[in-house]
Write a protein that binds this DNA or RNA. Structure first.
Lengths: 188, 188
DNA sequence: GTTAGACAGTTCTCCGATAACTGTCCACTC
DNA sequence: GAGTGGACAGTTATCGGAGAACTGTCTAAC
């Protein structure tokens, strides 16, 4: 099936591109074509141009990153525990995936290959977090939900850019902040 | 008095250095000496070396930045209004002072002239904010105070790095988050 | 649909030469 | 005595030109 082959090609190209980008190289179109074993023109046909390929790579990486976070959120029944798990997942995944870290911190090494900044990721993370909160707690005011989601996203990125405290500590703090913004916590 | 002259010299050197740095140039020691009308050796005697001069400049700029914020905090009797004023002051001052913005965002243009990152500023801002809270509300738990202060500092820096919303909106949001972390707010 | 090759225009890279800067001496002056 | 001007070795930035590589597109061929 042509569709299947096309998706496989895209995936393999992005795999190789990500691998090279993570290694610190800014992969060129000829090198990418050579490594994948395909002609340069096929790359241009599939991704349009270099920026298109970069955008696809960024889209896939951020999507996976956010998927992991959302899965963590959905995996815990308790709201505080859910946020602890999600923040922990974000920190862990960012530590493991240099591409995500580079995009979020606006680092010079990898992201020069791509155009995106941290803006779109933070916006997407905020939307997903707000969607999760509305899903599990439809009773909460929307303004509080949006404020909590945006605050959590910014705090996590802040801790990636400027580490402070252990992952456990950071996760607990962010979860506490979210719950208190929502007024959904019994205080100690 | 020698002390007075020495302070004047330091101030004038830092003024010129800041002016040049803001203009995008990385001022050299000879150029700085020439502009101030002093010998190159006087600069080395006064600041030790180039890094010492840069450190002095960073110290002065961040000190002024934090002073303005703390003054705003102290100028309002109501806690929410105090934080609104402080965040507003931070955003305004950062927009007006490219040196502070460059230090906080880790931008490549100006900060290449200096060594500091955003870490020390965030730490100092957190300390001052916590001190303010302890001063005006000694009854609050210290853990909450520290969490609120750190959260506010990170949120403000986050909004400098990645602008989102009007200054009024951001200031109101940060103030709300701080009050809710402290549990010192009647909810709407 | 894919490929190899060619193409103009741009960008990267290397290299040596030159200039400028850093940090530290010292003799000298007011 | 603090400040100056000059000199110094060692390092680092700057410039220009040559060469290579890359980008994006087109065409003929498979």
């Amino acid at each position: 099936m042509a569709r299947r082959a096309r998706d496989d090609l895209r995936a393999e190209v992005l795999d190789v591109a990500e691998q090279l980008a993570v290694a610190g190289d800014r992969p060129s179109m000829p090198e990418l074509a050579r490594r994948v074993g395909v002609s340069r023109q096929t790359l241009y046909s599939e991704f349009g141009d270099r920026d298109g390929l970069a955008a696809a790579l960024v889209l896939r990486a951020t999507g996976r990153f956010l998927d992991r976070i959302e899965t963590a959120l959905d995996g815990e029944p308790d709201l505080h525990a859910a946020w602890v798990a999600a923040v922990h997942a974000a920190l862990t995944e960012a530590a493991r995936n240099p591409l995500v870290t580079a995009l979020l911190t606006g680092e010079a090494a990898v992201p020069s290959a791509f155009g995106s900044g941290s803006g779109p990721i933070v916006a997407a993370a905020t939307d997903r977090a707000a969607g999760f909160l509305r899903r599990v707690r439809p009773d909460l005011p929307d303004a509080d939900v949006r404020l909590a989601a945006a605050t959590a996203s910014r705090l996590v990125v802040s801790h990636l850019v400027l580490p402070g405290g252990t992952p456990d500590r950071v996760a607990g703090d962010v979860a506490t902040v979210v719950l208190r913004i929502l007024g959904a916590e019994q205080r100690g």
